[in-house]
Every structure is written in C-alpha cells, then in structure tokens.
Design a protein around this nucleic acid. Sequence first.
DNA 1: AGTCTATAGATTGTTGACAATATGATCACT
DNA 2: AGTGATCATATTGTCAACAATCTATAGACT
Lengths: 226, 226
Amino acid sequence: MSEAAIQTYTRADEAFDCLQTAIVKGDLVPGEKIGEVELCSRFNLTRGPLREALGRLESRGLLVRRPHAGVKVVSVSAEELMELYRIRETMEGLAARQAAERMTDDEIADLQATLDSHEKMIEQAQGQAYYQAEGDYDFHHRIATGSRNTKLAQMLLGDLYYMVRMYRYRLSTSSGRPHMALEEHRRIAEAIAQRDGELAEFLMKRHINAARKNIETKIHNGTLSI
Amino acid sequence: MSEAAIQTYTRADEAFDCLQTAIVKGDLVPGEKIGEVELCSRFNLTRGPLREALGRLESRGLLVRRPHAGVKVVSVSAEELMELYRIRETMEGLAARQAAERMTDDEIADLQATLDSHEKMIEQAQGQAYYQAEGDYDFHHRIATGSRNTKLAQMLLGDLYYMVRMYRYRLSTSSGRPHMALEEHRRIAEAIAQRDGELAEFLMKRHINAARKNIETKIHNGTLSI
DNA sequence: AGTCTATAGATTGTTGACAATATGATCACT
DNA sequence: AGTGATCATATTGTCAACAATCTATAGACT
C-alpha cells in the first residue's frame, strides 16, 4: 500500500466527520443555535475534540461561531447558492483543463468506465435521483483530483462540495435531468481523452452553468424552496 | 458602526493570528517539525487554544499534522506556487467581473483613490518593494470584497492570499515591476468604473498571469529560490 | 555486520474541573 | 404600564493533569 488509510483516527477527526455529515444530511438545521454539551451527548464526544472540530468547521465556512454565545449552522440564501455555482464554474473549468493535460491514460479509462456504470444505474433506478447525485459527485471528484493541482482539489473537495451537497440533500430531488447530465459528462470525458484542455474547460463551465440555471428556474417556479 | 469589530477576542483567535503571521513572515520554517509545548512557550499560550488554532490552520492548508507525531509548516514547491497563481487567475478574474457589476460608485472612487496613493508611495519609496506589495494586496483585497460574493471573498482572502503572501515575504523583493503592475491595476479599475465586467475579468487574468510568469522566469534564472 | 525487536522517553490526544462571559428574568424607576 | 439596569444562571473559554501513541535507542539474533 503506497497511500495507506489514516493510521490513527483521532476523536477530533471522528467529531469532525460526524458533524460534517450531520450538517450535510440536514440533521443539524441551519440557523438553529446548538449547544456544545448537547452536541457532546448526541455524538458521544467530549468537549475537547468537539471544540477542535467546531474550529475546523468554522474555518471551512460550514458553521458560524460567536464567542460565548454559541454556534449555529450557516444558512445559505438562494443568491449565495447561485454564487457557489459561479465559483464552481470557474474552478472546475480550470480543473477540467488541467485534468485533460495531466490525467494518465489509465485514469481516463477509469473515468469513462465510471460513466458506463452511471448509465446502467440510471437505467435501472428509473427516477431515483440518488444514484445520479452520487454519480455526479464521483465524476467531479475524479476530475478534481485528476487536475494534479493539490490546492485546487483541496478547495473543491474540502470546501465547495460540502456546501453544495448540503443543499443537494435538502432539495433532494437533485437535478432531475440525469440523462442530459450524463451526456454532458460524456462529452467532457471525451474532450479529456482527446487531451483537448480548452474544450474540456468550456464544456465543464457550460455543464455547471446549466445545473445552476436548472436550480434557479426551479426556485423561481416555487418547485424548490431554500 | 454597522459592522462592529470582534467584540471578544478569544485566546484561540490570538493563537491563530500569531501562528498565521509567524508562518507568513517565515518565522516558522516550512518542513521543520515543531512541538506544541515549544509553540506555547514561544507565544505565551496554553495548549488548549493552541490546538484549536492548529486545527484551523491545518484545515486552511497552512500546516500539516500527523496524529501523535507532530505538526509542521507546509512546504510548497515551485510548481505548487505556480498552481496557486493559476487558481488565483480564474478566481480573481471572476471577482473582477462581479466587482464591475456590483461595486458601488463610492467603492470604485475609493479604489481609484487608493491607486493614486500607491503611485505616490512608489515614487517616494524608490525601489522599496514593501509598499508595492502592501498596495497590491490592498487592491486585490478591495476587489475580492467588492465582488459581493461572500464565499469567493472568503476563499481568496482566507485561503489563497496567505499562501501567496507567505512566499512574497520569502522572495521578499516582490515583483520588482511596480510601475507596470500599477498601470495594470489602473486599467482594471477603469474597466470596473465603466462597468465592463468582461474586460475587467480579462485584464485581471492577464495581470495575474504576468505576475506568475515574472516569478517563473526569476526561478528559472536562479534569481529566486524556493 | 546487518536487521529486527523491544523498551524507554518524549510528545500528542483526551479528560474533567475552573474561570469568564452572554443571556434572560426580576425589580426598580420614569 | 413601559423601559432601563441589575443579578442569577447557564454556557462557553481556559487550564492543568492523565492516558495513549509514536520515535529513537539499545540489544539480541541471523
């Protein structure tokens, strides 16, 4: 094993993961004030590691803390969610371009194989958006790491995705346009396979822009509420 | 005062600031392993707040921590520094575009006034790059906040700038092209004043790209070593 | 002689108690 | 009666001792 899994899993890491998934899954409601002792009893933790985890989460912008007053999950407005997508658009565009230049042939083959399995999933689980959401996450994850840009991957995977996923869960349905998204993924992968960075960037930006517009119209329709 | 300063400044915040500036200024050498107790005695802190600060710094990617083994300042290779600039290029391009669309007239006037004072500073302090570096930081800071994109500003100001500044200090000289940089700033400000987002984005990307190339050639020359 | 194992030391992770601060309710005053 | 200040409570921030883990040194074995 070259890259071993985390050898020692510290309590603080545990706390961090627990809280993060709780926030993403919506178990911790945005805006609601939550006490430290309550969190401790809820996740079987002690306050030390918990506070360390809270610090990390705050630094990542998932929750906001006021000294001596308490901590609450950050609540994102519709506008801010749209801003998040605009950031993703530019950053993932860059990631796609660099991925086209730097992914190994094996990685690209894997990427395309992944898309095949996504297609099967979509066909099997008609209308069940969950697989699509996971698949989408998987696809973007691979490209982010494929960019070989450590900091970029860190920002994308560590910061942005969790915020986006947080709202994916809430407006659970996900896009509802699985076939179209898959098709867009295919084209991006194709551009990467042809080592056409410029095209990959363009297609990725358009892909995320389309997702943003899709959500935006749903919000305006009233189909979706944040 | 609408946005009051931090009412209560906790020890953890103090620790965070101390460590961050120490890292940026180079008092804490990258790669070197540092013990918690040593840091405590050095900054007159106790281990509790220190550890919380360490967690935040780690989450921001300024240092890396291995459980039970210790913590060391992250060391960035020349390639990674270039990657950082590529990220800045796209993100600040976006910031400039949104700033052109959203900054108030007052803010734009302030921005241009800032450039005037920068010009005077450069003339007065011939060759002293410090003012230029600070001025540059100031300019980009204003545009980041002017974008009205909370998350974008947070990522730029909270994550990227500190890493870049860290190396600015080390290769202290800064660009050594103050007049040219100022001229580029002027053009960007002008584009923003004319509410031409597309142009502002283009000019900003070119500006950062030029800065990147400047450093890159210096590294190849051997003028600069990381 | 080289390599592997085991132990000692030091360092980090964790815990529970203590101090400082914000919130909410009570009471006096206008 | 409504508003302001004061105080009690509960919660957060901080501290110092304890437990768990890693690293380095020394020894035994192949």
